[in-house]
Simulated assay, not measured.
Amino acid sequence: MSKQTVSQLLQGRYHILQSLGVGVFGQIYIVEDVDYPERPRYVVKQLKVNNYQSDSYFDYLKLRFLTETETLKHLGQYDQIPQLITCFEEDDWFYLVQEYISGQPLSVELKQNQQQGCKWDTTAAMAFLEDALGILEFVHSQGFIHCDIKPENLILRSCDGKLVLIDFGSIQPIDFRIDTELLISQIPLSLLGYIPPEQFLGQTQPNSDIYALGIIALQGRFNRFNTSATKN
């Protein structure tokens, strides 16, 4: 998948500032909206809508993209989930524009702690769980399972230090059929260190997200988890 170039304008208004790498669907960028004097920043996800080797894989990616769009419309009103700004199609690409969260991924803090030999104490681990579980309580109460809980998808917001949950590209409804197998090829490789066994069997439940949070808490508390499993 080719990249758009920095400084390019999307839809004649979204000026690409920086590439954030590749996500579940494709390239992710930080952009600024030149239609406004204050030039607000957003995150843009990009999905190519043709040239896939398999029609079924294309249909899967497109479904996941549209699912994330609809999900953010519904869940983005929660303070710790990015709001959906808009979505559009341009030159055979789909684009999802969402709120930009100023901060750093939790993975950065965990990596720094590991390098410095630091560990969360019990108070810090409990604070993490309380904050993250509050987000999951809302997501689950709305009938969804995130399915991609990992440190890279938890942003420590600069303004208040609270967690913000991002990347809803793998979300599933809570009534996801247990006889429908979730193929390994459909699971982001970066997730494998945090995914519970039942998720590979298509038996994803709300507690699957909680399992992932538990792994993160153990990683922060004891620094014994192999973080290499979470690299993209």
Rank of each mutant, 00 (worst) to 15 (best):
T5A: 11
K162M: 07
T123K: 14
L61P: 00
V43N: 02
C87M: 09
K62A: 11
L84K: 12
P197L: 14
L192I: 15
Q186V: 04
D175L: 14
Q219K: 08
C159P: 00
K3I: 00
Q98L: 02
E109G: 04
L189W: 03
I178Y: 11
S190W: 05
F94I: 03
L63F: 14
P105H: 07
K48Y: 12
R224A: 09
Y194P: 02
Q98N: 04
K111C: 11
I28H: 07
G26M: 05
N113G: 05
W120F: 07
D160Y: 02
K150H: 02
L63G: 12
Q203S: 04
S190A: 15
T122S: 14
E99G: 01
Y29H: 11
F222V: 00
E130D: 10
D131N: 15
T71Y: 07
E89L: 08
E181K: 10
F128S: 11
C87I: 00
V44P: 05
V139C: 08
Y57A: 08
Y100V: 01
N226T: 04
S54M: 03
F128N: 11
P37D: 14
D91E: 13
T227E: 07
A124Q: 15
E70P: 00
D131M: 14
K231E: 03
Q4H: 13
A125H: 01
D35K: 15
G76H: 09
N50K: 11
I166V: 14
D55N: 09
E130V: 13
H15V: 00
E152I: 00
C159T: 08
L191T: 06
G169I: 04
P196R: 04
A217G: 00
E70M: 06
